[in-house]
């Protein structure tokens, strides 16, 4: 078989248990080389546990897992040699400068020192941290640390890049810089695998994704496919004031395709949001505010699990 035809990740009935707690409950995943793949779900869905197994730093409890066609239990080191990893919690080396962080990490991969220096400088440039190369890690902001971690993960020119919640806790500007860098990597043909609980991130970066909830995969597809399958083209958000959203449910029945009543608002799923709003007004209802927006993965998640992602 041609190496390129080998899936980057192939998991069958993959399970992870910590004592009695089953964090990952038998998931099937296949990721093709060059693909951008996402695990989407709330905290505790089993995304990080899955990522750690893929990264070869957490033993599989049961089921099978192959990375580049290799078993992490027996070929962990070979697999990790071809992976780039951005863990959820920063584990940059606080005792080293930015430049040395990258050089030392490259040396773990047995890359010659001169080559490490060259790549480190290039990558600091790539993540826009060249000016701070002799500074210390603790002097960096959260977004800068994350960018440095990304640069570090690229030192070995990985075939697959694993990012666990890459933009959690970052301000919008820092997120956009990161997305841009990741998009460039994707264009270079690097397989991207990321976990996120941000819908917009998944929509921006992922060709294909799985929605996870309580250790299981509840849906799979491209962002567009999932929205088409589980939601409508548009969503009308109505706010009737705290506490009175539920009362209005009865009078809204039949407007749009489907209703979702939340504590703070009512979501009306409709292919044409404006005409749904017109219908609401025709029925003599006076919401405090209304908003028509495009459907997002947030709506998909709500539909699949009955819960909002941010809860």
């Amino acid at each position: 078989m041609n190496v390129n035809e080998q899936p980057a990740i192939r998991a069958k009935s993959l399970t992870k248990k910590f004592g009695d707690f089953e964090a990952v409950r038998g998931i099937d995943v296949e990721v093709r080389p060059g693909e951008s793949f996402g695990f989407l779900g709330p905290n505790g869905a089993g995304k990080s546990s899955t990522m750690r197994m893929i990264a070869g730093v957490s033993p599989v409890t049961s089921g099978t897992l192959e990375i580049f066609g290799l078993n992490p239990a027996t070929h962990g080191s070979e697999i990790r040699n071809r992976l780039g990893v951005v863990p959820q919690a920063d584990n940059l080396d606080g005792e080293l400068t930015l430049l040395d962080n990258l050089i030392v990490y490259g040396r773990y991969f047995d890359i010659p020192r001169a080559e490490c220096v060259e790549r480190a400088k290039e990558l600091l440039d790539f993540v826009q941290l060249s000016e701070r190369s002799s500074g210390r890690v603790e002097s960096l902001s959260g977004g800068m640390k994350r960018r440095l971690t990304i640069a570090r993960g690229l030192m070995n020119r990985p075939e697959m890049f694993l990012l666990d919640e890459p933009t959690t806790g970052l301000d919008p500007q820092a997120r956009h810089i990161l997305w841009d860098r990741l998009y460039r990597l994707k264009q270079q043909g690097v397989t991207l695998v990321l976990t996120t609980h941000y819908m917009d991130e998944a929509e921006q970066l992922c060709d294909r994704l799985v929605v996870m909830d309580a250790g299981r995969i509840v849906a799979e597809g491209s962002p567009r496919e999932l929205i088409t399958r589980y939601s409508t083209r548009e969503v009308l958000e109505l706010r009737f004031g705290t506490g009175s959203n539920v009362e209005h449910e009865g009078r809204l029945l039949g407007v749009g395709n489907r209703l979702e009543v939340l504590a703070d608002r009512v979501l009306v799923y409709a292919d044409d949001g404006e005409s749904a709003l017109h219908e609401v007004h025709t029925r003599g209802l006076q919401p405090e505010s209304s908003l028509v927006r495009r459907s997002s993965l947030e709506d998909v998640f709500l539909r699949l699990t009955g819960r909002s992602l941010e809860e």
Partner: peptide, 14 residues
């Protein structure tokens, strides 16, 4: 605390 070993273990080092 510093998670230095976690970073090493993500590389080919064991």
């Amino acid at each position: 605390y510093s998670k230095t070993y976690d970073a090493m273990l993500a590389s080919p080092l064991g």
